[in-house]
Amino acid sequence: MILEPITPNVLSVRRLPHADPALVRAYGGDPAKHTSLGLVTVDQDDPTYVALDECTKHAPVDVIFAKSFYAGSAHASGKLSGEILGVIGAADPESIDQALDALVRCLAHDACFYDADGKRTITVFPHVIASLGEYLSKEAGLAPGDPMAYLVAPPIEATIGLDAALKAAEVRAVRVMTPPTETNFAAAWLTGTLDECEAAAVAYAAAVVDVAGAPRR
């Protein structure tokens, strides 16, 4: 069904209650601050970035590492690899537990790709974040609490969709990731008021569905 949610599969959730300082440093953390780590792999990368951002709102944790894998989960290195590895760090294991709960909850009920052609061969991620957390606000150069539209689709669909989104709403492009990203998609982060972000996301999804239905018009 068109625009049916495709729920991400959390492939692994592990904790390192007391990680080795060398490991923490290598993954971008501060060994003085990040003694406990939480690690997840998921088969959808962009919902996971959103979920990692979400979990910084629920517990005093930092996202110290989050990277997508080349060509996406269809070409994963193993059945637990998926499309992304996310690592969060905190001073104590309880914070990691709370953050991971929030992260898994967000993936189960909120952030997900949507089917754009009814056959799941084209997917779209037109996500609206009402209030940014610590992680994506820093990545985007916005303030925590700002709204942001996080828009992802395959290259041609994303290009036409971004044009539609920018024209449909009073939004500003914070960052545009031209194809190919690691997973061979294209993405854009837009900001504005929450209403405008929502209008942009809807226009983006409608354009992607339109391109998916008529690729040669």
């Binding site: 069904m1 068109i2 625009l3 049916e4 949610p5 009920h109 909120d110 952030a111 997900c112 949507y114 037109p126 996500h127 609206v128 009402a130 929502e198 996301a201 809807v202 999804a205 409608a206 569905v209």
Partner: peptide, 17 residues
Amino acid sequence: MSRTRQLMAGLRDALGS
């Protein structure tokens, strides 16, 4: 239901699905 899911459900209705 999350806001994004509501928006997409609304769009799905608007597209006649």
